[in-house]
């Protein structure tokens, strides 16, 4: 990553980090309030200061550690897959009421309060540091700058952030899209897979669509009519099926390109690749239909 402060690459990575920080930010103010509520008045201000300081320090430390961990082969792929899940969870609408953090029990001592705040921040911030570690392309400077910009906003300007996302919920969707794009970048940069992607360039597009179709599923499934809802499962499954044939072709040295197929077995594999998924999709749709009918019948019987 180039360190020219005004280059598009640097500003883009910084923007991604700040956006990810804002949408994945934990509610530090609430945690601090819950933990410090049973302490005497004079200790509360000290707890707020040291709790905030500890939270920022642990966040910066974890983010820098993540940059080094992501350099280890295999972790970039695991981190990318985790980001897909995080993006999907971010966009999934809230079911019931707010989940109260079980980490934020009221503390009775100053040290206990600061410890609880720091641990709560570390647990809540794992997804956050993973995402900014991926978006920073290995640059510690970017991570520190991103944290220096976003942490004060989250800690002292949380009301401003809430106002922003309340007025423009599209910021959350944009955050989900940036997370998915970061996940794609991380998986493609995985040292184990770099050479494979170079020899199979078309799979990059399949992978990108697969990642977006899984991450953004809560968004587009909300817009699909009831009879089209199975697409949320069928589309990613179909892309996975195609990717699996590419991977199998490499692992077992099987010829899966029909232009290069030379014997009956290779033509059979090619046929399986393009139409073999149809029976599985038909089976899935039939089973789903049976479940829907059964639940409708059960609902009718109870009325």
């Amino acid at each position: 990553m180039e360190t020219d402060f005004f280059s598009a690459a640097f500003l883009s990575a910084l923007l991604a980090i700040v956006l990810i920080d804002l949408v994945l930010a934990g509610d530090n103010a609430l945690i601090i309030g819950l933990v410090a509520r049973n302490l005497p008045k004079e200790s509360q201000n000290k707890v707020i200061f040291w709790g905030t300081f500890g939270a920022i320090a642990i966040r910066a430390f974890m983010a820098i550690i993540v940059v080094y961990i992501l350099a280890v082969p295999g972790f970039m792929l695991a981190g990318g897959l985790a980001l897909v899940w995080i993006a999907r969870k971010l966009l999934t609408p809230e079911g019931g009421g707010h989940e109260e953090s079980h980490l934020a029990k009221p503390a009775t001592t100053f040290a206990g309060a600061v410890r609880t705040i720091v641990i709560a921040d570390a647990v809540m911030g794992v997804d956050n540091v993973l995402a900014i570690g991926g978006a920073a392309h290995g640059s510690v400077l970017l991570i520190v700058l991103g944290l220096a910009i976003s942490v004060p906003i989250i800690v002292w300007g949380s009301k401003l952030v809430i106002k922003l996302v309340d007025r423009y919920p599209s910021v959350i969707l944009l955050g989900g899209a940036v997370l998915a794009y970061t996940a794609y970048g991380m998986i493609v940069r995985e040292p184990f897979l770099v050479t494979w992607f170079e020899t199979h360039p078309a799979t990059k597009l399949v992978l990108a669509v697969l990642i977006f179709s899984i991450s953004l599923a809560p968004w587009y499934s909300e817009r699909l009519p009831a009879h089209m809802k199975p697409l949320v499962v069928v589309l990613p499954a179909l892309l996975l099926w195609m990717l699996a044939f590419e991977v199998a072709g490499t692992v077992w040295k099987v010829q899966i390109d029909y232009l290069m197929a030379s014997n009956q077995g290779e033509y059979f594999i090619e046929g399986l690749r393009w139409i073999g998924w149809l029976p599985f999709v038909a089976l899935f749709l039939w089973v789903r239909e049976q479940f829907v009918q059964r639940s409708q019948r059960a609902a009718r019987d109870t009325h």
Binding site: A25, H98, M124, I154, I162, P169, S170, V171
Partner: peptide, 22 residues
């Protein structure tokens, strides 16, 4: 709990997003 969950509109962004934002 995430900060965005303090806002109902943000926590249900896929339902509350404006057409132009979408």
């Amino acid at each position: 709990m995430r900060l965005i969950h303090r806002s109902h509109r943000a926590a249900n962004a896929v339902r509350t997003v404006s057409p132009s934002g979408e």
